[in-house]
Amino acid sequence: MPLDTSTYNLALLRVDGRRWNELRRVHAQIRTQAAADGSSYLEMGHTKVMCVVTGPSEPGPRRGTGGGGAGGGGAAAGAGAKAEVVVSIVIAGFSSVDRKRHGRGDKRTLELQSTVANALAASLHTHLFPHSQVNISLHVLSQDGSLLAALINAATLACVDAGIPMTDYVAACTAGSTSTYAANDEGADPLLDLNHQEEQELPGLTVATLGESDRVVVLVCESRVQVSRLEGMLAVGVDGCKQVREILDRVVREKGRRMVQEGTVEKGIGLNEMDVD
């Protein structure tokens, strides 16, 4: 279904009525599952993702690898200095318009898993947990563009909830460009946070940054685009990541504040107190 991009130039409004630099509604919750070590639920527009983190914990005795004992043990000792981040993604059959079965061996899913795992591993202080594993399991309930960004954000929130030390939030969002590749329009504006329709039609990329810095953890571009447009898209994307970080941070703070009020967590010392004596 071709998207009528010509209207953008008239009203400077996108198909869903947003301006170029507006995120969709981001709604997030943490601690959605009481039994898990960490859990989160995140909506970016109509993209809905659920995340459960188990660990860091030591995987129990592995079945079936008993034969290769000596060799495997030696190798595991070398790899055991850091916690391993293992991600599994389940894309629900009902998540997109066309009901498609996504097998576990789907290469795109495998790529997403590896991307989320490597992105989180860059921020998590895995060296604190030798011999252990952090299992992140993500469930995609609904897809409307910016899937990778939503997955990364949900995983970050769940890891914060699980109390796993990390350098900073890894926040992600997408950025695009208003006119299609073919239009070769030099004056194309950058766009923030693409939905499914825009993602299909327009060039775009997914950016994830570490905290409030400009340091890019993930940069994925899967569409053809002039190299000159990259800078603008990247700048908007990085800016969007900072906004997303702010939103995620607010969710965590709100939860923490409520826990302090309820008395579940003992109050800490005020920040201002420290510098006094």
């Binding site: 923490g256 302090v260 009020q261 109050k267 005020g270």
Partner: peptide
């Protein structure tokens, strides 16, 4: 003072500068 000011300031989040 700190006992009475129970606001969000009691919570720090990853990446936040403490001092």
């Amino acid at each position: 003072a700190r006992l009475t000011t129970s606001t969000a300031s009691d919570i720090v989040t990853p990446g936040e500068l403490i001092t």
